[in-house]
Design a protein around this nucleic acid. Sequence first.
DNA 1: AATTTGAATTTTTAAAAGTAAAAGTCAATT
DNA 2: AATTGACTTTTACTTTTAAAAATTCAAATT
Lengths: 202, 202
Amino acid sequence: MPKNADEKRLKILETAKRRFAHYGMAKTTMAEIAKDLSFSKALLYYYFPDKNSLYAAVLEHVMEELEEDITTSLKSILSVSESIVVVLEKRMEFVKKYYYILEYTVLMRKDLSSELDQLLIDSFESQKAIIRDVFRQGIERGELMDVDLEEISKIFLFSSMGMRLVVVKDLKSSFIPDKEEFDAILAMQKKMAAIFIRGLKV
Amino acid sequence: MPKNADEKRLKILETAKRRFAHYGMAKTTMAEIAKDLSFSKALLYYYFPDKNSLYAAVLEHVMEELEEDITTSLKSILSVSESIVVVLEKRMEFVKKYYYILEYTVLMRKDLSSELDQLLIDSFESQKAIIRDVFRQGIERGELMDVDLEEISKIFLFSSMGMRLVVVKDLKSSFIPDKEEFDAILAMQKKMAAIFIRGLKV
DNA sequence: AATTTGAATTTTTAAAAGTAAAAGTCAATT
DNA sequence: AATTGACTTTTACTTTTAAAAATTCAAATT
């Protein structure tokens, strides 16, 4: 029964996600995940070749969730400004929710397996693609100047993600930044976006 | 002869600066600095209470040099765009030249003494003040909209510095990024600045 | 045949202990 | 006051060891 097998795989994925989101990859053991599910540890290895792959699958899962969430919200035609605000807000919402999975992974990028590193790059590209589409629509609608979409979306993404990084102080201390900090960053990102978009207006 | 004493202090500062810029703080020993100068190690401690203070003095020295350099270049009245380009270029020039002292210190901020951390904060403030003045003149000249200067200069600085951080991959490997990378960042920063400033135009 | 597991094996991580190098001190000297 | 050589204290690096966690696998179950 492959259906059931897929279900089991998903169960593992979800349980792992909960653990990873709470404690991060390093402080989550395969034994703990197995225990949560009342599975044997070995069964996890039947469904996932290793811990790294499991983590990668979780990361991918979260990324897809974010991407779908944003895409759905952008279905109704909005102005460029409104769309960008949606993107920034959704992104921050996810960063808060899955801090250890998303941002912490980025911060720890230096000691990441190439597999995970590639996933991060992919997710970055996917974020850029979303931004690019928003800008493209803006251009098509005659709202924005005709610019190099690829370049502009990259610059925008670097700026807004970068703002976040400037503020991060303690990579070491595995504390999650508090709500105030997240909100302050988001406010800055929105303000920056508003000016940036105005600078692209026809 | 206090004059001579001050000279000696400066000599130490300069020698230390050369070492620190080349090898970074961790890989520079007090003994090496002393040897370069043919002084005894103990003499360094006569002029500076400890290694950290010496490093802080060097950092401060470099920061002042950068600040003066930028301020001088901005003496002749330029447009906001031109001024910002000057700031970005000078800053990058210094980052290249004193990589280990400037950027590396920022990247290693997490394990910095509070004394040094404060210096970084100060230098950040000084950079922000420069940007603020540029924008202020732009507003006074009627070139830019009337905005919250403090807020806007902070956002601009976070964006441009942040772009740099997004690109940095290996905090660990103590390699200096190559010229291409510096140039690519600078190009992005300039492009971002152009759009940002356009977004602030009256 | 596809799942599942307990037990065994290998790899990582973490703590402890020891060692070498560098930081920092100080009494004596110029 | 400026300077130093010799001395002490810290810190950073290795090595060792033990424990924990990852991974494998032969056997059992469905």
